[in-house]
């Protein structure tokens, strides 16, 4: 039955999101997309989001959301000083560095 439902999901080519929205989401996600990618993701995301409409079927008015399955809340470790990793080890993976810091373009002009 799952597979039967999913054939709807696969062959539904309705465009529930616009190209404008695709560009907006790519901007939020800081992803450069080519025009071909924008169109492809418009089709694929529309199909997936249409399929997700099925989630409207069950009544969840009185159902709390599950963000985590664990009965744990606000876990804190004791605030004890420990040695950090050596700066040189951390900077070894940096794409660009200046002295003991990561080098980046200016954040504020």
């Amino acid at each position: 039955m799952i597979i039967a439902h999913c054939s709807v999901f696969i062959y539904n080519r309705g465009m529930s999101i616009t190209l404008q929205e695709v560009r907006h989401v790519a901007e939020l996600a800081k992803l450069h997309l080519s025009e071909v990618e924008e169109k492809l993701y418009q089709v694929q995301l529309s199909a997936i989001l249409d399929y997700a409409q099925r989630l409207n079927a069950p009544d969840t008015a009185s159902i709390p959301p599950t963000a985590t399955v664990l009965p744990l809340h606000s876990i804190m470790r004791d605030d004890e000083a420990r040695p950090s990793l050596p700066v040189a080890d951390i900077l070894a993976n940096a794409p660009a560095r200046a002295d003991d810091a990561f080098e980046v373009h200016a954040v504020l002009e």
Binding site: V25, L28, L31, Q44, I63, P65, T66
Partner: peptide, 29 residues
């Protein structure tokens, strides 16, 4: 990239309740 796009959309203003919160509720079921 497909999943980052999908996830960013589901968490974005105006869609959070319809997709992400709804999915978390059905997760409870």
């Amino acid at each position: 990239k497909r999943r980052i796009m999908l996830g960013t959309y589901a968490l974005s203003t105006g869609y959070y309740d319809a997709y992400y919160l709804k999915a978390q509720k059905v997760r409870t079921l």
